[in-house]
Design a protein around this nucleic acid. Structure first.
Lengths: 230, 230
DNA sequence: GTCTATAGCCCGATAGAC
DNA sequence: GTCTATCGGGCTATAGAC
């Protein structure tokens, strides 16, 4: 079955244990990283036996990878749904030349929706552990990073880049790709530099009202970037 | 003298040991975080005795804080130099109304220089351990984050915000402050999402040529933001 | 598939000689 | 200030009963 299947048998019991261990592990690994998490604490939090980590995942590292596999699947289910239709739409436009005005507006709308979705995902308090794990993995990538990149990042960045290229055809592929990274930066910063954000803005927290302000700012920047004449 | 002085005596020997331990600790703490670093390994790398960490810094945590004190001072020496004169210039402009064209151009030039300095600092391979430590501290801030924020972040963000406010007087203080965060994001992303960057751009590494491209992109975005009419 | 028990290792802190 | 030696504890992995 899946590459992380237990060596023997199938059954609800084992599955629910695996699931509980993964969910507990997400919290623990996110808190202070791989090394700071202990398998004892994960097992306690999952109300499972510590030895089962070895049995189901081969060890602490196997559990870590299973966590990323799980997260990647969850995000694909959440974001990937929107990506497919856009890829189809872009393929449709492919052979055509310059965009008509309605097509252009449609592309802008799609771009905004993608950016909004990603921003909401990264600012959602429920996704905090995911975000922390992903960010940590970026700075010293292990095999887990490949799972993430292949799982959803690659596709997401790809369609955003294509949309930018459509909207600013004078850009080279590299210029468009680089501008996508700066857009990503404007989204990530609200998770990455959260402490700086709160202190600089003197916000008590990032709640729904703050997310609205953040989205307004990012969208305004994006609009400005799309109208830029350099 | 300094708050982290050893409890007794003064001398070159102790100072150089302290310094060696701090520099070794920067590397070790940066690698995989506070918990993964071991005092034994730090001492070995500093060619000092492990027990001296307790003597000079009170323990592992004291050494961690001393590392951030050191980094904060280094960055202040590097960035702070530029900040003082700009603060003075902004104070000069304070009572005046709308900017004249040459004043406006001067403000844009100062802003660009600040952004370029920060970008170069964060992309400099030598600063990689600093950047890693700073970023980790943001996500689960300890006392060390206060050292950083008070040490240089606060002043830097303050003058950038003031420059933006001068250049776009129609913005509220909060709008200007938020746009500064998105600028910060465009700089940080090249460190934070380094793995994604390399894979997405298919760059082998971030060298001087890539930094030039990055700067060009960030400056173009900034220009677009400053000319935005919303 | 789940459990207990433990082997074997590395850790941070510190007492005490110099 | 620097060193050696060690204490006490937490860790992962695993053997073996059920």
């Amino acid at each position: 079955m899946s590459p992380t299947s237990p060596p023997a048998e199938r059954g609800d019991r084992g599955d629910s244990t695996r699931r509980a261990l993964i969910e507990a592990a997400i919290t623990e690994f996110a808190r202070d990283g791989f090394h700071a998490a202990s398998t004892r604490e994960i097992a306690r939090s999952a109300e499972a036996n510590q030895a089962l980590i070895g049995y189901h995942f081969g060890g602490k590292e196997g559990l870590y990878l299973a966590v990323f596999q799980f997260i990647s699947e969850q995000i694909q289910a959440r974001v990937g749904m929107a990506v497919g239709p856009i890829e189809a739409y872009l393929a449709e436009l492919q052979d055509l030349g310059a965009l008509t005005m309605p097509q252009r507006e449609q592309c802008v709308a799609l771009l905004m929706r993608l950016v909004e979705g990603m921003t909401r995902m990264f600012t959602d308090p429920n996704a905090k552990p995911w975000a922390q794990l992903i960010l940590r993995e970026q700075q010293s990538p292990t095999k887990a990073f490949d799972i993430l990149f292949e799982g959803f990042m690659s596709r997401y960045l790809g369609i955003v880049t294509q949309l930018i290229l459509r909207l600013r055809p004078e850009l080279s592929r590299d210029e468009a790709a680089l501008s996508v990274i700066t857009i990503l930066g404007q989204i990530l910063v609200f998770r990455v530099a959260r402490s700086t954000l709160l202190r600089h803005m003197t916000w008590p927290d990032v709640g729904p009202d703050q997310v609205d302000l953040i989205l307004k700012q990012i969208k305004a920047n994006l609009t400005a970037m799309l109208h830029s004449k350099d």
